[in-house]
Design a binder for these strands. Structure first.
Lengths: 211, 211
DNA sequence: AGCATAAGCGGACTTTACCCCGCTTATATT
DNA sequence: AATATAAGCGGGGTAAAGTCCGCTTATGCT
């Protein structure tokens, strides 16, 4: 009797071939995105180009959106690391308001960098992919609480700030033309500045720190 | 020579048969949404049920999402009317901050009421449907300016507040189970309260009016 | 090592959004 | 009223997402 009481004991670690195929698919997908843009990545095309069956693709990433969620997730991992255990102001230890501001800038920057993929990760039939806000919203909520803000409206406020942070990129911004010629300043630098500064204003006012 | 200098002179008012078909399609679509839910409305099904060709549907509403945008638009018209020329606090004349708050509550209520349709109106390939934020964002921007807020960040702030208002419903909220048995309190009443109050807090703090 | 079994895999199949292009019909002009 | 012409219309065609199910293969047990 091994402990089934700890439910995460061993969910079957993932077969070696499966892992190999996941890597293969993810890499292939990334290449296809780079070459033709996220919009032109099809399930059939990906399967063919990776040299596996279509069924395999669907087993790994439930839906088309799933691929992009996974792609995004991978790219996000080190950012999350810096948030959870890096140096302030992004990492733990500093003033919560500063952390909020730093988090916002980082997140918007990330989303803009991966704009096409981030949008492709949205799914008409699902509320929202697990990858993105899965960490953003609780983190904002946590920092708000740390800053002593929100009170009875903590949850709603966290939700709305999350939307204020991610919504513009996910919902309202048109996908800017593709990759800038190597070495050029990316086209979205202005947008990043605007959104990051707007976010800072928003957060400061919400938290009542220096209007 | 009639004036082509005024570009909106007469964009060809729309042929009578076309208008008839639009009404027919819109009504049919509404019925189908009510019966089977927005997710189960297909282009072929709609065309068949309305007794017109598929091509006709596509001509009227460029895409599937277009149908729902139109549906939403129609329902929104009287709300817009009240915003533009109704009595305060929603209509013109009152304190801008109060107008912002009232607008937010009204908009969230509307979006929750038409949640399924609103989500269906999103299009993977388009930044955002023209109908919704088309009025929301400029209105918020205008009221912010009226309230003397925003300054250099007016545009970004308006964008982010728009997202804070609409994002939760469009992005993060799961579609609640279908229509409540006639006469019952709709399931989303709680969510409406939470979001409306959160919005009020947000707006008040952003505008520095009674923290 | 051999076996049982559950997970992985492939590709044919279905459904659906969207395109295309020739025919029909409303409206402007004479 | 007749005609020209641009808009409306229809339905067959394409491509891509997602499902199904039988075959294959890795892994745990003895």
């Amino acid at each position: 009797m091994d402990g089934d009481l700890i439910p995460l004991e061993k969910p079957r670690p993932e077969r070696a071939d499966a892992a190999r195929n996941r890597r293969l698919l993810l890499d292939t997908a990334r290449r296809m995105v780079a070459e033709d843009g996220a919009a032109n990545v099809t399930m059939d095309g990906l399967a063919e180009r990776a040299g596996v069956g279509k069924g395999t693709v669907y087993r790994r990433f439930r839906t088309r959106a799933g691929i992009f969620v996974a792609l995004l997730d991978e790219g996000e991992r080190d950012f999350q690391q810096r948030v959870l255990s890096g140096p302030p102001p992004l990492g733990p230890g500093g003033d919560p308001v500063d952390r909020l501001i730093a988090y916002g800038r980082g997140r918007v920057c990330f989303l803009l960098e991966h704009h096409a993929v981030a949008r492709a990760a949205l799914d008409r039939n699902q509320p929202v992919p697990a990858g993105g806000p899965g960490l953003t919203r609780p983190h904002i909520r946590y920092l708000l609480a740390q800053a002593g803000q929100g009170g009875r409206h903590l949850d709603a406020l966290a939700l709305q700030l999350t939307a204020a942070l991610e919504g513009p990129v996910l919902l309202y911004l048109a996908t800017p033309a593709e990759a800038p010629e190597a070495g050029e300043e990316p086209a979205w630098t202005r947008q990043l500045q605007a959104l990051a500064e707007g976010w800072e204003v928003l957060v400061r006012r919400v938290c009542g720190s220096t209007p």
